[in-house]
Write a protein that binds this DNA or RNA. Sequence first.
DNA 1: ACTATGTCCTGCGAGC
DNA 2: TGCTCGCAGGACATAG
Length: 270
Amino acid sequence: MPELPEVETVARGLDRQIAGDVIESIWLGSKPEPLKSPAREIAAALRSKKISRIRRLGKHIVFDLEPTANGSAAVQWTVHLGMTGSLLVSKPNTDREKHTHAIAQLASGRELRFVDPRRFGRLSVIEKFSPPGAEPLDISLHDFAALFRGRKTPIKSALLNQKLLSGVGNIYADEALFRAGIRPRRRASSLSHDELRRLHSALKRVLKQAIKLGGSSISDYVDSNGDEGFFQLKHRVYGREGKPCSVCKTPIKRIVIGGRSSHYCPKCQV
DNA sequence: ACTATGTCCTGCGAGC
DNA sequence: TGCTCGCAGGACATAG
């Protein structure tokens, strides 16, 4: 589910709501825990910590925790939402949703709940998190072009490779390729300079617009308030198989690339 | 080093 | 109504 715009929306919402709050304690649920770090390490690292800020790096939500007086080092708590994860700020007496795997009790009396039906999400504690790839909203055209040099893989797969770009997912890869007029199966190394320029610009444009609209709510994505996004209304190809292209009316095609469904207009994209 | 494929999990909608 | 199948925003491990 959550790609860069959705994760950005959640992180901004959390920063607005709970930055400055203190995690009094944490409850970690059930057997196959969605944890990268050991449970006791996470619990110990979060207990009594003040959250100085919350932000997005790649598709990760990063909580900066202030060091405590007894000299413990400053650490970060990272949350990856996987396909179906959500982080919700709730009143403590509200019903616990099914598939709630972690709850942080905050000093303000609220709770931060991690809910994830498919359990692909991950929680972890780390000294300083850094995403593996470049930040799509910041990367220069020069560096962007260099990412794809000599790569035989389809451009769609390259866009999804988090070691190249951190944050692009299936929806925004398809939407950016449509806006740039490039077919998803094209070999990454085959793109001309002009195509790379268009893709670089289209990707930033689509991500920024999606952030403005609070992301795409396809099935169960909601932000930290439980509110839906609206960018799904702006999708031109994703999820529109067989429907007419918004530009030329040609039916949108759906193919599978690297195991991921990929949507494009056979006339507008070359 | 790079690329393709399978796997982890649960839920939902389509089709029979 | 109720079953089975395919599919779903992601990211890893593994094999070639």
